[in-house]
Design a binder for these strands. Sequence first.
DNA 1: CATAGTGCTTCGATAACCGAAGCAGAGGAG
DNA 2: CTCCTCTGCTTCGGTTATCGAAGCACTATG
Lengths: 117, 117
Amino acid sequence: MDSRTPRPGVPVRGSESGRPVMAALDLLGRRWALRILWELSQSPAGFRELQRRCERMSSSVLNTRLNELTDAGLLTMHGDGYQLTRLGEDLVDALRPLNAWSQRWADENAASVRVRP
Amino acid sequence: MDSRTPRPGVPVRGSESGRPVMAALDLLGRRWALRILWELSQSPAGFRELQRRCERMSSSVLNTRLNELTDAGLLTMHGDGYQLTRLGEDLVDALRPLNAWSQRWADENAASVRVRP
DNA sequence: CATAGTGCTTCGATAACCGAAGCAGAGGAG
DNA sequence: CTCCTCTGCTTCGGTTATCGAAGCACTATG
């Protein structure tokens, strides 16, 4: 098991402070991490199913992320696949405003593109 | 200028769909992106000041991120440094629940560590 | 028995990131 | 004016993360 999984209270990539939000930014800033949580919030899925949903993401990275997120207590694995823990669901809830924001972002971006084609 | 800045409506790393939230996950999933927004939400800062706050992050990556985030319309640069746009501030607001969540994460993590020392 | 599915691993290639150094320009001091 | 210092930014060689194809061990099904 990779012991470099970001944890609150411990120095992480880019911050020695150990502040929880810094550990979160490190964990979630790694590639595919947010996406995996997002997909599992839609519905639980097995390894290969996740890989398909994320347009053939590398299996080695998927495995690494699954281990990290499991270590961090955000998801668990049963016989029928991976699913979010209570804590993982809460994180996805906390990330929900991001969905609404991205829509506004799309609108403003379309507007700013429209004036210079 | 790097034209690979993720934008809503355009295919990005890991998703061909062009869905806004996927573009957001790509943009924000890159290293230091969330952190830079976070720091600028505390207060505007110049290039080297940002570098200091982020514990000597590489200047090349900082420059790349600043360009991407500016391209995406999340921040602007004046004579007195970089600062968030309205859209950038909204994003930080949307990310605010993450702060609260990370605190709960820290609590639960401390609890689960305590039972197996 | 063969076939197809699973979770996961290995490994060479590529892309992202790091870190130290340096450049050009804008001041301020002497 | 020169010298010094600060700025935003660039370059480049080395390290790390990620990719992608292949394969392993196992289970289930026919």
